[in-house]
Design a protein around this nucleic acid. Structure first.
Length: 830
RNA sequence: GCCGAAGUGGCGGAAUUGGCAGACGCACUUGACUCAAAAUCAAGCGGGUUUACGCUCGUGCCGGUUCGAGUCCGGCCUUCGGCACCA
């Protein structure tokens, strides 16, 4: 029996408790069923869920429940990316310990997630700030260290003055800190790096294997890795007995070189200043350039500045003297930090040469055209044409010339072909407290020593000062810093930096497979049973950051023999933002809608249904209060029609012969089975949840139409329709369907353990269909024909149709196009 | 500049392989129920034109292919996103 009115709050609390008590969503390894690992990006415990979270988890929950009902053994876990700065800021601002703040937020957000009725196996919960997790994050650091992939080196790094810490390249967005949006400056510091560049080529190549990833994300990663092929070679610098190595992707333009440029940081600058009358001027220039921020220095609009050093090097092929300049537009950390200048075939060099009156030589002519310097207003950069003024290479086609020049340089022994990447090594140390300590000890005698495995985890101390300034708060804890060297036993000091939280999140999806393992990050059998993640769902903002780091981690773990897979996420769905009034929800705009408020008013099922219905998952979702009302109304409609048929359903007519149905019944049964097919295909093949829901709405409309049309409802048909409708709806709105299922179908078990319905092809068949009737491609009427009518029959029927017979002159018919099941098009001469 | 995605009613969005444009929902209009309102149930709902059957225009713009184009091709425009002195 069910109540007359739909009361979401009562039934949602009831079934959430039921699922928890019955461990409905607990998962174990099971070799008899195919596995499916469905994962949503785990959240940072900021305090409250926002609509973006709700969208993310609703999508994942539908997929997980759908796959379970389709016979998969589904892993669907949840956890907390719980290290990070906001916890520390709360400590500085309000004096709350980061751990307390974080754990309270996790408790609150867990409660909010449970109110959404998500099908997580909570026994697998993972929390990155707990010692039993960060122990293994530290263990992975040591693994990387032992494999030569974690190194400490000094370089110019990104520093955020607001966050008081260094940042990885990926965390600098348009020259600003990804977290606080303040301008990032460069500092020369010794820091820990993970050598992600060792994997640049593999990370790039394997993108081609990721057929289940959006093109957009793959393109972003390709751009970020930025592979280029070229030639590295040297100019002789006889004045000081050195060579200047340069890197170019355009060796074909080598005869057009009129100057060579060094980055301001280039070590040769200091050497060429010795006994140089311009030394003071050069040093002042370099100093000024180095103090420019990244934004000033790398903006393409900013003025290119340079200074002639007074020195010359020798062109390796022509023997000409070539001026050596220093500029602000050459990057020290890309290629060799020095570049050849070819004004005629590079836009930057053209501008630079114009500004400083440097020579220009045309060495490439476009096909069938001769470039004349006096006519040129711009560099000719096309990679097409013929080499000229290029000695023995003149007359060669561009690509042929390029290869010939590379061969020549290599044969001369002054250079070689080279591949360069834009990708930089991942800076992983942070001068912050709330992170996993780097497990390294510095001994005056032994140097850098790893903390032995059996002493992990290196626990975060609690006796620290949080506002320590530019050093890590860990440095303020005497008891933490001072230790003994594991090798020689003498007094030593601990590393006081912690690890980038992106490191914690680079392997969490593996820990879910074996979350309580105390002897290893995960067991091999378990990780290889569940991995890789079959469907990953999250925001596009991680297109590079988290998704690139995780891919890197997986490759290293694969090479270390810990996992059998090279890619962590087989399929990726990037959900769009939730917006309101055309803008992202934000406190400052005052357009935030809180999930708790919506759940409080309508219940979780309505919130989930609206979010899934309002837009396809990859697109932006415009929040609409009226749209939410509409979703609530639909659930009310479902409730009322089931309530209406309650007594009919109570007869439990589970079997019947469809042949005994009348017209109205056949019609309803046809809609039911086409809906089953449509909903199944929409979820399975396209993630078009919005159209899946619209199909279910049509089914409910058809049920209402049947109620009007059939005076004596067919008990078997009603039972079949309602039972299947509830199953189709259950992944989207798990509570109301569970309530109705128990009320009218079965009091035992859960609807969520039922099998997904199968469409009956016979039920979808119709005798007669309506097709379009066109003349010259324009709609001129409709024609009801037997569903299996062939081309000849269609043509006959079409020509016999009164409207056509009257208006179309048979002599002028050129041909008749018949598409069975679709249309007839009569082509007529004018 | 390079790369990627998108552009359809008043709005969110459908149209899956080139085959009836606008499914489904929101908003709006009307009818039933009601003393009345809400809720609910039922019906209508791109523009122009017509008493009506119809006719006609219509998927960012201009062309093309085709019996037939929202969908394919060529050329633009606009919006969003990524990369960008990367040599």
């Amino acid at each position: 029996m069910i109540q007359e009115k739909y009361n979401p709050h009562e039934i949602e609390a009831k079934w959430q408790q039921y699922w928890e008590d019955n461990k409905t969503f607990k998962t174990e390894m099971d070799s008899r069923r195919p596995k499916s690992y469905v994962l949503e990006m785990f959240p940072y415990p900021s305090g409250n869920l926002h609509m973006g979270h709700v969208r993310n988890y609703s999508i994942g929950d539908v997929v997980a429940r759908f796959r379970t009902m389709n016979g998969y053994n589904v892993l669907h876990p949840m956890g907390w990316d719980s290290f990070g700065m906001p916890a520390e800021n709360a400590a500085i601002k309000h004096g709350i310990p980061p751990k307390k703040w974080t754990m309270e937020n996790i408790a609150n957000m867990t409660r909010q997630q449970k109110r959404l009725g998500l099908s997580y196996d909570w026994d697998r919960e993972v929390t990155t700030c707990k010692p039993d997790y960060y122990k293994w994050t530290q263990w992975f650091f040591e693994l990387f260290y032992k494999r030569g992939l974690a190194v400490k080196k000094k370089s110019a790094v990104n520093w955020c003055n607001t966050c008081n810490t260094v940042l990885a390249n990926e965390q600098v967005i348009d020259g600003k800190c990804w977290r606080c949006d303040h301008e990032v400056v460069k500092k020369d510091l010794e820091q820990w790096f993970f050598k992600i560049t060792d994997y640049a080529d593999e990370l790039l190549k394997d993108l081609d294997l990721l057929e289940g990833w959006p093109e957009r994300v793959k393109t972003m990663q390709r751009n970020w890795i930025g592979r280029s092929e070229g030639l590295e070679f040297s100019f002789d610098f006889p004045e000081i007995g050195e060579r200047i190595p340069v890197y170019t992707t355009r060796p074909d333009t080598i005869y057009g070189v009129t100057y060579v440029v060094l980055a301001a940081e280039h070590p040769l600058v200091e050497k060429l200043c010795v006994n140089n009358p311009k030394a003071e001027e050069i040093k002042a220039f370099c100093e000024r350039v180095r103090n420019q921020s990244d934004i000033e220095r790398t903006s393409s609009e900013s003025e290119k500045e340079g200074l002639f050093t007074g020195c010359y090097c020798i062109h390796p092929l022509t023997g000409r003297k070539v001026q050596i300049w220093i500029t602000n537009y050459v990057l020290y950390d890309y290629g060799t930090g020095a570049v050849m200048g070819v004004p005629t075939h590079d836009a930057r060099d053209w501008m630079f040469a114009d500004k400083y009156g440097l020579d220009k030589i045309v060495v490439i002519n476009p096909k069938d055209k001769e470039l004349k310097l006096e006519d040129m207003t711009d560099a000719y950069e096309e990679k097409e044409g013929v080499l000229v003024n290029s000695g023995e290479f003149s007359g060669m086609e561009l690509h042929e010339g390029m290869e010939a020049i590379k061969d020549k340089i290599e044969a001369m022994g002054i250079g070689q072909r080279r591949v360069n990447y834009r990708l930089r090594d991942w800076l992983i140390s942070r001068q912050r407290y709330w992170g996993a300590p780097i497990p390294v000890i510095y001994c005056p005698d032994c140097g850098e020593v790893l903390v032995p495995e059996d002493q992990l985890p290196v626990m975060l101390p609690e006796d620290v000062k949080f506002d320590a300034g530019a050093v890590s708060p860990l440095a303020t804890s005497e008891s933490f810093v001072n230790c003994t060297c594991p090798k020689c036993g003498k007094p030593a000091k601990r590393e006081t930096d912690t690890m980038d939280t992106f490191l914690c999140s680079s392997w969490y999806y593996l820990r879910y497979t074996d979350p309580k393992n105390a002897d290893a990050p995960f067991g091999k059998a378990k990780v290889n049973y569940w991995s890789p993640v079959d469907q990953y769902i999250g925001g596009i903002e991680h297109a590079i950051l988290h998704l690139l780091y995780s891919r890197f981690f997986m490759k290293v773990l694969h090479d270390a023999g810990l996992v059998d897979y090279k890619e962590p996420f087989t399929n990726l769905l990037t959900q769009g933002m939730v917006i309101k009034d055309g803008a992202k929800m934000s406190k400052s705009l005052g357009n935030v809608v809180s999930p708790e408020e919506i759940i409080g008013k309508y219940g979780a099922d309505t919130a989930r249904l609206f979010i899934m219905f309002a837009a396809p998952p990859e697109r932006e979702l415009e929040w609409s209060d009226q749209g939410v009302e509409g979703s609530f109304r639909f659930l009310g409609r479902v409730w009322r029609i089931v309530y209406h048929y309650q007594d009919v359903l109570a007869q439990k007519v589970t079997q019947y012969d469809p042949a005994e149905l009348d017209e109205a019944g056949k019609n309803l049964r046809r809609v039911l089975h086409t809906s089953i097919k449509k909903v199944t295909d929409d979820i399975e093949q396209r993630f078009n949840f919005n159209t899946a829901i619209s199909a279910m709405m049509e089914l409910v409309n058809a049920l209402y139409a049947y109620k009007e049309a059939a005076k004596e409802p067919h008990a078997g048909l009603i039972y079949e329709t309602v039972a299947n409708l509830l199953k189709l709806l259950s992944p989207f709105v798990p509570h109301i369907t569970e309530e109705l299922w128990h009320g009218v179908i079965s009091e035992e078990g859960s609807i969520h353990e039922e099998k997904w319905p199968k469409a009956d092809a016979d039920a979808m068949k119709v005798d007669r269909i309506e097709i379009a009737l066109q003349v010259n491609g324009k709609l001129r009427g409709r024609l009801v024909v037997p569903a299996d009518a062939g081309k000849d029959e269609l043509e006959k029927l079409a020509l016999a149709e009164p409207h056509i017979a009257e208006t179309v002159d048979t002599d002028k018919i050129v041909k008749v196009v018949c598409v069975p099941g679709r249309l007839v098009n009569i082509v007529v001469k004018p």
